[in-house]
Amino acid sequence: MRTTFSGTEPDLPALPKVAAIVVGASAGGVEALLKIFKPLRRGFRLPIIAVLHLPDERRSHLADVFNSHLAIPVKEADDKEVIAPGTLYFAAPGYHLSVEADLTLSFSQEERVYHSRPSIDILFESAADAYGAKLAGVLLTGANNDGAKGTARIKEYGGLTVVQDPAQALARTMPEAALALHTPDFLLPLPDIALLLVELERIAC
Rank of each mutant, 00 (worst) to 15 (best):
E100I: 02
R153M: 14
R45K: 12
A25V: 05
I120D: 04
A19R: 15
D192Y: 03
V65R: 05
P16Y: 09
A92M: 08
E57P: 02
R42G: 12
T141E: 08
D146M: 04
L179T: 11
I203E: 03
D165W: 02
R112G: 04
L54E: 06
Q164M: 09
K80C: 05
T173G: 06
K155V: 00
P175V: 13
S98L: 15
E125W: 03
A25E: 06
G137R: 12
L135P: 13
S68V: 03
L46D: 09
L135W: 05
G28H: 00
I21R: 04
M1T: 15
P184E: 11
G28N: 09
A91R: 04
G7R: 05
A169Q: 01
L105P: 10
A101L: 13
A14K: 09
A194I: 05
C205S: 13
L88R: 07
L15N: 10
A127N: 03
E100P: 01
P55H: 05
F44V: 06
I122K: 14
S26P: 03
P166H: 08
L139H: 10
S98A: 13
L123A: 02
I154Y: 02
H182Q: 14
T104G: 07
Q109K: 15
K75H: 02
I154P: 02
S6H: 13
L34W: 02
E156Q: 15
T151V: 13
E156D: 14
K80R: 14
V138C: 06
A84F: 01
A143M: 06
N144R: 07
Y131S: 09
I120P: 08
L62A: 11
I72G: 02
V163T: 12
A128F: 06
P47Y: 03
G158L: 03
G43P: 09
P10N: 13
P175I: 12
L197P: 03
A133E: 08
K38D: 05
Y114G: 00
P47I: 06
L12W: 06
T151K: 11
A77S: 08
H69E: 15
Y114K: 02
A71L: 12
A20W: 05
G94I: 12
Y89H: 01
F107N: 03
